[in-house]
């Protein structure tokens, strides 16, 4: 790699920093509104059109939701101005621990290895005694 290429790469990195700063300043993107049950079901219907999810549990900050559909847990969480969705066996999600106030679901998925959803009281919404 030549000095010229190194210089060109550094200049590109600087241009990227400026462009990203400019994008942030322009604030074109709008975070979606906090999820409620109806909003979560709309996103879930888009993501899992074959499923029939039960009433979803909504994360305390409205940034995610979990709904049971048969043996599966359908999960959505906010990323930037959109949502990301994953399904996992219900038993695994129900048994997932709460870490630092967030229900933490580990997935066998290099695209999204972990989903973290804020609980209101630091207890799992699907744990012992909780309604599922």
């Amino acid at each position: 790699m030549s000095w010229a290429f190194l210089l060109q790469t550094l200049a590109s990195a600087a241009a990227i920093a400026i462009l990203v700063g400019f994008t942030a300043w322009a604030r074109i993107s709008r975070a979606p509104p906090k999820l409620d049950a109806a909003g979560a079901l709309r996103v879930l219907a888009d993501e899992f059109p074959d499923a029939s999810p039960a009433t979803p549990w909504i994360a305390a900050d409205g940034a995610g939701a979990v709904a049971r559909s048969g043996d599966e847990a359908l999960m959505i969480f906010r990323l930037g101005d959109g949502f990301v969705a994953r399904a996992a066996p219900w038993a695994r999600v129900a048994a997932s621990p709460v870490v630092a106030g967030r229900l933490t679901v580990r997935l066998d998925d290099p695209g999204a290895p972990r989903i973290r959803l804020l609980t209101g009281d630091g207890a799992s919404p699907f744990g012992e005694g909780a309604a599922s």
């Binding site: 790469t9 590109s12 990195a13 990227i16 462009l19 990203v20 994008t23 942030a24 322009a26 074109i28 993107s29 930037g80 101005d81």
Partner: peptide, 15 residues
């Protein structure tokens, strides 16, 4: 629709 972090990933992928 531009989202700053998404734009950062796109541009860094390009570089």
């Amino acid at each position: 629709a531009y989202e700053a972090k998404d734009t950062a990933v796109s541009l860094l992928m390009g570089l």
